[in-house]
């Protein structure tokens, strides 16, 4: 087991100062997924290639001939990130290079069109890190529903609210029994940083699922982007954990939140996409949050 973690990084100031994502991105104001990318790259360092399918990051990285990135970024077709990364990883390994291959994909490119390639890569044991930043819709094309859009959320293709639940991507990944998988959230960059570090220290297919609030998509003011992420965790809507070789451990911020979750309304109220939610849907959402908390708590205790 090559589980070497830099335990020394306990606060943000300990994170490397080197920047691989410059400030000249083409992201919207208040974009949290671009913030996440910044920390991911700080953790990964310069010997890293990003493989990016069609998504907001295709635009955020900058427009030709400019770029906001200081690592190679390989842009590829929407469905193809995990497969392309597989080939790249095999090639580096064949050449004896230890370059990190990180697929950085949106939720649509992961749970919808890209899931076949993703499943294949994990089943094959590809040595790479797949990161899904989840803004819960198709941001690049103007906020249509994705399989990862939560129940009740209004998008441009679900103007009456999404009638079905968010696809449980993490359980799909878990079914592939990867050596490492984790959830993270843009509002907890240190937690994200550590998880990327740990993931990259392990051989095989690794997965990190980041909740990345998106002001235009979720319809909240740009300055509330960190607050929105915190509320997702505090209400137990989003649970931070890692699963190493099958063993689940709940991460600090969620440990407290799961014991006494803040009312779900705190999270939902500030988001235009949940406007006029009917009481039945809200009830269902509450139920889902509770069930999730219970399921994950049980798994950590080993009673599942």
């Amino acid at each position: 087991m090559t589980n070497i973690v830099e335990r020394s990084v306990t606060n943000l100031s300990a994170i490397p100062k080197e920047e691989y994502l410059y400030k000249c991105t083409s992201a919207c104001a208040g974009c949290s997924s671009s913030l996440c990318l910044r920390y991911v790259l700080k953790a990964a360092g310069p010997d890293t290639v990003l493989v990016v399918p069609a998504c907001c990051t295709s635009v955020i990285q900058g427009i030709y001939p400019g770029t906001a990135m200081n690592v190679p970024v390989y842009n590829v077709a929407f469905a193809a990130a995990a497969a392309c990364a597989s080939g790249m990883s095999e090639a580096f390994s064949a050449m004896g290079r230890e370059t990190n291959v990180i697929a950085y994909a949106g939720d649509g490119g992961t749970v919808d069109i890209g899931i076949q390639a993703l499943s294949g890569a994990f089943e094959r044991g590809t040595n790479f890190l797949y990161i899904c930043y989840d803004n819960e819709a198709y941001g690049n094309t103007g906020m249509q529903r994705s399989g990862s859009t939560p129940l009740g959320a209004r998008t441009t293709t679900t103007p009456g609210g999404k009638p079905t639940a968010k696809k449980d991507l993490d359980r799909i990944i878990a079914a592939h029994n990867p050596p490492y998988m984790a959830t993270a959230c843009s509002a907890y960059p240190l937690d994200l940083y550590k998880k990327v570090k740990k993931a990259l220290s392990i051989e095989g297919p690794k997965f990190i699922h980041i909740l990345a609030p998106c002001p235009p998509g979720w319809r909240y003011p740009t300055e509330k982007t960190v607050e929105m992420g915190k509320l997702a965790v505090k209400t137990g809507t989003w649970i931070l954990y890692e699963r190493e070789f099958g063993k689940l451990s709940i991460s600090g911020p969620s440990r407290a939140a799961m014991k006494r979750p803040a009312p779900l309304e705190d999270y939902i109220r500030g988001q235009g996409r949940f406007k006029n939610l009917d009481p039945a849907t809200l009830d269902l959402m509450r139920q889902q949050v509770r069930q999730n908390i219970e399921r994950i708590a049980r798994e950590e205790e080993g009673v599942c």
């Binding site: 083409s26 992201a27 919207c28 635009v59």
Partner: peptide
């Protein structure tokens, strides 16, 4: 439309 996001 250019390729940029909101605010451009």
């Amino acid at each position: 439309y250019g390729a940029e996001r909101r605010g451009a």
